[in-house]
Amino acid sequence: MSGKIQHEFDGKKGSFFLEEEAKRVAEMVYVMAGPKKMIIEHTEVDESLKGQGIGLKLLKELVGYVRDENIKVIPLCPFAKAMFQKKEELRDVLN
């Protein structure tokens, strides 16, 4: 993995993503359910990057952001939900 995780947000929904050669190869998409509540909708990682912990990197980037912004998270995405169950140190952001 070479690129840096980027973040885009349009005021309602957004994503943390990784691009390689102008193509998104990994992405965690969310929607805001209120000013301080975020729903993680889904996570997608390109087949070529599977097994490298990219999804977790995206989640950690998102957790860092919501901690700074004092936002609570509802993980509807099965991947994110499973990661929160595994990683106790991330659970402080859960709604």
Rank of each mutant, 00 (worst) to 15 (best):
M1R: 06
M1D: 06
S2V: 13
S2A: 13
K4H: 15
I5H: 07
I5Y: 06
I5M: 10
I5Q: 09
Q6C: 07
Q6D: 08
H7N: 11
E8P: 05
F9I: 05
D10P: 13
D10Q: 13
K12V: 15
K13G: 13
G14Q: 02
S15P: 00
F17E: 10
F17I: 11
E20H: 07
E21I: 00
E21A: 08
K23M: 05
K23F: 00
K23R: 12
R24Q: 13
V25A: 07
V25M: 11
V25T: 12
V25C: 09
M28G: 07
V29G: 06
Y30C: 01
Y30D: 01
Y30F: 15
Y30Q: 00
V31D: 04
V31Q: 09
V31M: 04
M32F: 13
A33N: 08
A33Q: 13
A33C: 09
A33K: 14
A33Y: 06
P35H: 07
P35Y: 04
K36I: 03
K37W: 04
E41T: 12
E41N: 12
E41Q: 14
H42V: 07
H42A: 05
E44M: 10
V45A: 05
V45Y: 03
D46T: 03
E47Y: 11
K50N: 09
G51M: 09
G51I: 08
Q52L: 15
I54E: 02
G55W: 09
L56S: 04
L56Q: 11
K57R: 15
K57F: 03
L59Y: 12
K60A: 04
K60W: 09
E61D: 14
E61W: 10
V63D: 00
V63I: 09
Y65L: 10
Y65N: 08
Y65I: 02
V66H: 03
V66L: 08
R67W: 07
R67G: 08
D68A: 15
E69W: 08
E69D: 07
N70G: 12
N70K: 15
N70D: 14
I71C: 03
I71M: 06
K72N: 08
V73G: 01
I74W: 02
I74E: 11
P75Q: 01
P75L: 03
L76Q: 15
L76F: 15
L76V: 14
L76I: 13
P78G: 05
F79D: 05
F79Q: 05
A80D: 09
A80G: 12
A80C: 12
A82W: 05
M83Y: 04
Q85Y: 12
Q85V: 12
Q85G: 12
K86A: 09
E88F: 00
E89I: 01
D92H: 02
D92C: 03
V93W: 01
V93L: 07
V93E: 03
L94H: 03
